[in-house]
Design a protein around this nucleic acid. Structure first.
Lengths: 223, 223
DNA sequence: ACATGTGAAAAAATTCACAGCA
DNA sequence: TGCTGTGAATTTTTTCACATGT
């Protein structure tokens, strides 16, 4: 019998969960999946923390936001903790998603293998370039961006990924919001403005490089 | 006369600068460059913060880690602050870099236009696949990964980008370290272990999607 | 008048340290 | 014994609020 929620109804309105905690949760999940692939059945906060560069207390405190998942004196059963974290993150559900902008980055995202394991399925691509429309790339149909609202509704798309140039990003974001996606990941190097009820995450490849440059210039090893 | 450093020698050993501060610095820089492109000569902590969703005090405190860059009663001169931040981040230098792994993502990175504006120049690609070696993609020569050490030294490559499958990432990281790169950006979905003196940043596309899933499931709008 | 820069206060996140259970 | 879960202490980060400079 898994101790899934000996106390807390997993993600109650207790307190706002810091974004950093959610990010670490994803790292724990990734590490747990590697552990299972390597044949481990159980692990501990100490082992998990060591692999990722966190303290054992941090691992336990992070999990404590959501419930009690371990066995005192023993540790955590990997498969149970994986399922618990997937439930918390929502990656045990199906997430139909669309990529908008089929340039170099858009194509790379269409072919990325890592999404399917966490419930993300790319069910449409969009572009304004007539030479791409109607084609199928990596098994995904590419539509005219003018069809976005229709296709998002027909295919029940919940998440949109913006991979267009900066100048077009806000307009694409507006179209995705109008089509009623629930969340947006923005790869364009610009800040987009969205209504409160639409979640978003921004990823800027140049900014990641800038972080490494700073770390090097200041001789830091941080990750 | 810019007030560049009325007090602090920009990035002294005062105190460790939080990673979150450095990340926001990159966002300020991006926003300032958009402001200049839009014709603004000056801005203020309030305006900058509003565009990015931070308070004015936060913007000022972040900059205060590195010196005094503003004019009381006036604000900041965009061009001066841009140069100051570029100096802090180190993006006013030249950063020869290499992409290891010329799959979908590697190719997208080779063609990414956003790097050159911040001093990053891709001067080599590496792959183990004989059909790619010797070719030129997006104007970048692709070498056999066995040549990594030689090429890194010949071309004075300072940063390495890992875009290989998870199973090969640690080995590639070790090769980059042996070739004496100063920093590594890892796109493989695995935690890599590096010596203390090599800086690193990890970017996992699936984890970014997981963050959006969590935000949606918990009806958050955070970015 | 207006916006910076900065001590002081407040809030948040992390680490400590130990009771309790397997 | 070994490891979790968690209050308490500590450290870090953010916000406040105002003296200072233009």
């Amino acid at each position: 019998m898994p101790p899934s929620e000996r106390k807390k109804p997993a993600a109650e309105n207790d307190a706002a969960v810091p974004k950093a905690v959610v990010n670490r949760l994803s790292l724990y999940l990734r590490e747990l999946q590697h552990l299972v692939a390597a044949g481990s059945a159980t692990t501990s906060s100490g082992q998990l923390g060591q692999k990722l560069g966190f303290t054992d207390a941090q691992v336990r405190k992070d999990l404590a936001y959501f419930g009690q998942f371990g066995y005192p004196g023993v540790g955590y059963r990997c498969d149970e903790l994986i399922e618990a974290i997937r439930g918390i993150l929502g990656t045990n559900r199906h997430w139909p998603m669309a990529i908008v902008g089929i340039g170099n980055l858009g194509r790379a995202l269409l072919g990325y293998k890592g999404f399917s394991h966490q419930g993300f399925r790319i069910v449409a691509g969009f572009d304004a370039d007539a030479s791409k429309i109607g084609k199928s790339i990596e098994g995904v149909e590419i539509f005219d961006i003018a069809e976005l609202t229709n296709v998002v509704q027909q295919r029940q798309i919940k998440l949109g990924v913006i991979a267009v140039p900066a100048a077009a990003a806000q307009q694409v974001a507006d179209q995705l919001v109008a089509a009623k996606v629930l969340g947006i990941v923005n790869f364009a190097p610009v800040t987009i403005t969205l209504p409160e009820h639409v979640s978003h995450v921004g990823v800027d490849l140049a900014i990641e490089m800038e972080q490494i440059a700073f770390a090097v210039v200041n001789r830091l090893s941080g990750g």
